[in-house]
Amino acid sequence: MNIFRLFGDLSHLAAIAILLLKIWKTRSCAGVSGKTQLLFAVCFITRYIDLFLHFVSLYNTEKVMKLIYISASVFTCYLIFFKFKATYDGNHDSMRAEFLIVPAAGLACLINTKFDAIEILWTFSIYLEAVAILPQLFLISKTGEAETITSHYLFAQGSYRALYILNWIYRYHYESHVDTIAIVAGVVQTILYCDFFYLYITKVVKGQKIVLPA
C-alpha cells in the first residue's frame, strides 16, 4: 500500500458517500445518471466475485472495503430506481448502456491476462469502469448544468483513478509491478474526466456552478 493508492481509495469512498448523502438529504436523484450507478454496481460485483465464491474473513480491511463498495453502490441504485424513482431524470439519462457493456465484454474476451472466468470478469470490470461515467457526463451535457454537490462527487470519482495512476507509477518504480490492462483502462478513464476537471477547477472552486456549454 502506498500513499497514492490510499488516497485513491479514500477519494473513491468519498465519492460514493457524497452521492449517497446528496440523494438521501435532498431526497432526490435529479442530475444523477442511474445508468452510471448501475454500471458501477456491475463493475464491483464482477470485480469482487471472489467474495461470493468462498467465505472471506472480514477482519481483512480489503474485504470490508469490497463489501462496502458493493453494498453502497447497490443501495444507491435502489434509491435511484425505487425509493426516489419519481425524481429520476430518465429522459436525459438516455445514453445506451449496452453500447458500453457489449464492447467491454467483447474486449475482455479478446484482451486479457488469462482466459478463465474470474480473470475475464475482472478484465470486463476494468474495461467497463473506464467508460461507466459516460452516461453521467452525457446527462450533464444534456441538462446543461451540474449541481455543485454532483460536481464534487464527479471530482472525487475522477480523482480516485487519477491517484491510482500515480500508484501504478510508484509500484512500477519501487516494486516493478505492472498491470498493463488496469493501467491502460485507468488512463482512458481519467482522460474522460479532463474536460470536467477543467470546468471544476475554473468554476466550482470559485463558487460558481458548472453550466454547459462552458
Binding site: 493508492r5 481509495d9 473513491h12 480489503e62 472495503m65 469490497k66 463498495y69 491476462t113 488469462k114 475482472w122 491510482y164 500508484n167 498491470d179 488496469a182
Partner: peptide, 10 residues
C-alpha cells in the same frame, strides 16, 4: 501455480 497473477488492488 504460484506465478498466478493476483490482482491485489481494489
Amino acid at each position: 501455480n504460484d506465478h498466478e497473477f493476483k490482482h491485489d488492488e481494489l
